[in-house]
Design a protein around this nucleic acid. Structure first.
Lengths: 336, 336
DNA sequence: AAGCCTGATGTTTACGTAAACATATGCGCC
DNA sequence: GGCGCATATGTTTACGTAAACATCAGGCTT
């Protein structure tokens, strides 16, 4: 017996109201199979009257498929990732797919738990940040047989396919550019401790390139918290007041670097003569700075779009793991 | 008969592997009821061996409840909303709740469809931007009997409860501040056509305050696309080259206003003597500007946190509609 | 030693939907 | 005028889980 006062109406309720069977309601709702004009009308009326809303939990359970795409991101505190998410959502919407997501705050343990939770929704696919994941995460994903796309990074072995850029090469390119400008004595400013693995890779590329040319990294200042302009400003003050003051500073991202510019402007430190600066990401807000930062533009939106697109397209799950390099673009600025 | 080669393992599969009944597996998985140490161990082993992942679709269908919170946002293209989302996610995670979300791109029709889609997941609650929604949206939500929180705005009648600020008052406050500084002839620059209803309210507050004091709005420049610094720059150039040039410009948000600052800096227009500027939001990137923008700081993170918190707390659904004013804070800058 | 509780496990059922199969009605055809 | 076929609708079942209820073994009580 259906018709409980308090509960949401089901197809059964609509069926009774319209004087037909539940199956007929199902047919009318989806516009499949054969239905007479008359019945269709009655059912639609009944559905509207009762405020019927289909229950996707039931549909998905029954069909053993969902319109969900799981999305994992390190944080929403950085514009970079909301742009990736933007690309994903824009691509999914209109195709009847919906994102369910969560953030790891750069913790591998959180990622593990999050992935388990997300997979329990039986999503069509999952988008993960970076290529480094715990064994448990990999096993869970493999067992789920779900399609995976990794984004942001291509330095390593993807589970299936990765859309991103070589973080190592980006660091290297930045270093080489600075080296051509004549700088040899560098400082590095980062954040998130060593948890931001892509920042670590960039710095490795930067450091290797510097060392190969006989340059040196005089000081590494990596704070533990999230990156922000104010933190970059503080860190820059510290680094520049050290006895062994660098000629140039490489920042793990634009927020920190912009803070560096703020410090220099407020303290009469001339860029690039007193100190040269370089950041990473090419975020739009850089346009607002009084002086153009040297940075590396990354295909953030495109990574999201391509990742989502890949999950939409019908691909073979057994494909060979591969990486798609979406490249990056060094923007020479006035700070170096 | 279970054990289909291709499909994900279910409790039945684990049960067979462990030589117990499905129900026992369920008990072990959730740690409820009575289970012997021995059986528990066998079941856990079997589950691990088969890579069992619970199916939340089934659980939710069976329990008639989900751990989902639906989130609707106008866009991810503006930092404001990713900050709100950040507040929501941070508050939900750790409580076993998950956000499912979508963006409307400022379209009421899209919102309607999106809300219907989201409600079909039978979420615990739904978070909507603003107080203006189509009748169909309201009806769907009412029928769903789902808990609703509206965020951003408090100028109007909430469906149930709203956490936000008075957009009208914010516009008014900005105008009054500008008026005390002696400006009387104003320009307005907006975007998103008239779709950004909160921007419209702010402008109404601004305009009313200006008119009340005998000032006037000489020009209104509202472009149709999304807001961006570059658009603000273009618009500012246009407005300042008009024959009836305003003494001060009010922008619908900080991105546009920052573009205005860019224009002035590049064209030797001195702020605030040649023209005064004011924005809205108090986004962190303003810190990067060479000159402090007059703006209104909004409690973006807090709106997200409070909204999510309200859905977590056990509230009476039949409560009287009400609005919670989280206030705003005018930041006097160097541009006015 | 019969009765009875307790702890451990099993069986049945319902959640809402949709495929597969079953049934009914009517109409054309030879 | 009976056969067959198309069209419209109904019935059964399964998806995976968990509450409610049923069963069963063993030990304790008197």
């Amino acid at each position: 017996m259906t018709g409980k006062v308090d509960s949401r109406p089901t197809m059964d309720d609509v069926a009774i109201e319209a004087g037909v069977s539940q199956m007929t309601v199902s047919r009318v709702m989806r516009g499949t199979g054969q239905t007479s004009e008359q019945v269709r009308h009655r059912v639609e009326q009944a559905a509207r009257k009762l405020g019927y809303v289909p229950n996707r939990l039931a549909t998905s359970l029954r069909d053993e498929t969902t319109p969900l795409i799981a999305v994992v991101l390190p944080t929403l505190g950085n514009r970079v990732f909301s742009e990736v998410l933007d690309g994903i959502t824009a691509t999914l919407s209109g195709r009847g797919l919906q994102p369910v997501f969560g953030v790891t705050e750069y913790s591998e343990a959180t990622e593990e738990e999050l992935v388990r939770d997300l997979l329990s929704w039986r999503p069509q696919g999952i988008i993960l940040p970076g290529l480094e994941h715990s064994d448990a995460t990999r096993i869970a994903i493999r067992a789920a047989g779900v399609r995976v796309v990794e984004v942001m990074d291509i330095d390593g072995d993807p589970i299936s396919i990765a859309f991103g850029l070589s973080q190592y090469a980006a660091g290297q390119a930045t270093a080489r550019y600075m080296l051509t400008k004549g700088y040899r004595r560098f400082g590095y400013i980062g954040s998130q401790g060593a948890r931001d693995l892509r920042a670590v890779k960039r710095f490795n590329g930067f450091r290797d390139a510097v060392r190969d040319s006989g340059g040196q990294i005089l000081v590494e200042h990596v704070s533990d918290g999230p990156s922000s302009m104010i933190e970059g400003r503080r860190a820059t003050a510290t680094v520049l007041s050290a006895p062994d003051r660098p000629e140039a500073i490489y920042y793990s991202n634009d927020d920190l670097a912009a803070g560096g510019i703020m410090h220099c402007l407020s303290h009469g430190v001339t860029m690039p003569t007193d100190v040269a600066l370089a950041g990473f990401n090419g975020l739009p807000f850089l346009e607002a700075l009084p002086i153009q930062l040297t940075t590396v533009e990354t295909p953030r939106l495109e990574m999201g779009i391509r990742a989502a697109q890949h999950l939409i397209d019908d691909h073979d799950t057994s494909e060979v793991p591969r990486v798609i390099d979406l490249g990056f673009h060094l923007i020479p600025g006035q700070t170096s």
